[in-house]
């Protein structure tokens, strides 16, 4: 694999990390497998695209996408999931129904064409890194991924909210019994996770472009990341993203038509030995 392909893999992994970290936060704490996460990603991309086009500002697009997707997440969590609390399977299937609605809604609003979020002037062109000329924007995605990782790590390990989230992942009932309003922690986590999907949508929309089945594609990658990394573990998502991102690039280089298969192999081997993923712990 050349340096160029390695960087492709790393930047894709960074995008996957942003999307999948939101997924695993919600999965780890609320025990909700949000299958609408891919649809939230796509919706975030479209909204970010619309705002970025109108205002001409990529940053505003990002903020708008995160806010809008957090709002949609709020509706999903408080308006719908509220009715099926505690029923794992019903929750999953409900989010799946919600994904279908969102996806179709996106088709109504933006149609079936593919869009690419405009890259700001500053990030256009390329840079010379490790002896190859590489698109600046993709390097920016890589940096953003690292920044998000650092921010989440700080949030989880060095703030009160983070401590509550970590405690909630281990034993939500105990946290509640010690007088914490765990419902509010749940809600904040859900909104944060959704916002990360929205951010991912905007970032991915600028180099993978946005089209009607993009939600399913990013969802299957996120699932692979979480299955490999394990539920609710930030480090797990990081390692999972790197593995899936690099393997996917390797697959695309070596067997372009069967790239999906290349992420499936390691997932299979891993599951045979660690059914809960690399960093997963039994609930």
């Amino acid at each position: 694999m050349s340096i160029f392909q390695l960087l492709n893999g790393l930047t894709f992994a960074a995008l996957l990390f942003v999307v999948a970290s939101g997924f695993t936060l919600i999965f780890g704490l609320l025990r909700i497998v949000n299958l609408a996460h891919g649809a939230l990603y796509l919706f975030g991309g479209y909204i970010g695209y619309a705002i970025a086009l109108k205002t001409g500002s990529f940053v505003l697009g990002g903020i708008g996408a995160m806010a809008a997707i957090a709002a949609i997440g709020f509706v999903l969590d408080q308006g719908l999931l509220h009715f099926v609390r505690g029923h794992e399977l019903r929750q999953v299937l409900l989010t799946l129904g919600f994904a279908f609605v969102l996806n179709d809604l996106a088709l109504v609003i933006w149609g079936g064409d593919s869009f690419t979020v405009p890259i700001p002037q500053m990030l256009r062109g390329g840079l010379r890194v490790f002896g190859v000329f590489y698109p600046t924007y993709r390097l920016f995605v890589l940096v953003t991924g690292i920044v998000v990782f650092a921010a989440l790590w700080l949030l989880l390990n060095h703030t009160r909210l983070g401590a509550l989230i970590r405690a909630g992942v281990d034993d939500a009932e105990m946290v509640e019994a010690s007088g914490v309003n765990i419902r509010r922690v749940f809600l904040v986590t859900f909104l944060l996770g959704s916002a990360l999907a929205g951010l991912g949508g905007l970032m991915g929309g600028a180099f993978l472009s946005l089209y009607p089945s993009a939600d399913a594609e990013i969802l299957v990658f996120s699932l692979a990341v979480v299955i490999i990394g394990g539920r609710g573990s930030l480090v797990g998502v990081g390692v999972g993203s790197l593995l899936v991102g690099l393997l996917n690039t390797l697959g695309q280089v070596m067997f372009p038509e069967l790239a999906y298969f290349v992420i499936f192999g390691p997932m299979a081997v891993l599951l045979a030995f660690r059914p809960l993923g690399l960093f997963g712990r039994a609930a």
């Binding site: 497998v33 999953v92 299955i227 038509e257 069967l258 298969f261 499936f264 059914p275």
Partner: peptide
Amino acid sequence: SGVYFLLLTLALGMIVWGI
């Protein structure tokens, strides 16, 4: 089992779709 089963079958099915 449980949700993991659902996730895994979903991911496997998606791989078939991708291929």
